[in-house]
Amino acid sequence: MVTGKRNLMKIPQHILLISFTVIFMYPIIWLFINSFKTKQELFQSPWTLPNSLNVENYIKAIVVGNIGRYFLNSIVITVSVVVITTLLSAMAAYGISRLRWKLSKFVLAVISLGIMIPAHATIVPLFSMFSKININNTYLAVIIPLVVFTLPIATLILTGFFSSIPREIEEAAIMDGCSIPTAFFKIIWPMTTPYLVTVAVITFIFAWNDMLFPQIFLSDPNMMTLPVGLNAFKGRYSTDYVGMIAAVVITIVPSIIIYSVLHRKIVEGMTAGAVKG
């Protein structure tokens, strides 16, 4: 009897959870479905499946809307940021957690301070500096600030992870005459690969999704990244809804694919700072 009553109690909870699942998933599914419709179909029957799987909207978004070019720019910028941030944060975390020197705690505190500073407060000074050295409208103008703003959290997460792995293997290697750089690349790097992947994916998500820096530093249409390009698309073809839907799908698919493969790592990485308190 008791278990029967408990199962009954669970029904409203299940209903609530399922209705929230619908609320979270349906807009995304709706995008995929409607990206194959013509504009007339979208206006007449936004709820139904498309009549045919025509990819015309995608072709139009790529050819006319320049989404292909934006995609390429996004890839170049995101990959550079991921590589640089992962490498630098791993080195910094190694220095802070493994090497004993007076200021290591202080350096960690200074780096963590970076998490508190909103990127918006730095935009105008950065813009004036980048104008002076003439790198506005180059990939560099977005890569530099993105690396700077992803480094603090990456370093903090890796420092936590690095402190938890045993020192013995490294000590043995050093005894055998291994230098510190070799110890880092030959021992720490392979041992901490899972953690480095975590940091790399959350950096990817941050860089891929960021709109603030590219919106300000990249005004040349050929240099724009996807989020900025989407907004430009909206401005130029404001009534081409189906084309926009296709462009949105192209933008979100890489994040969704990476999320479905690595969701445990992403969730772990993105909440690591908060959960450890």
Binding site: L17, T21, I28, T251, I256, V267, M270
Partner: peptide, 24 residues
């Protein structure tokens, strides 16, 4: 399953979500 579904929107870029909701 629920946990990973609920988390999904925060890995999607804000610009795409904004545009999606202008359709909604």
């Amino acid at each position: 399953f629920y946990q990973s579904v609920y988390f999904l929107p925060c890995v999607i870029c804000g610009a795409a979500i904004g545009l999606t909701w202008t359709f909604i």
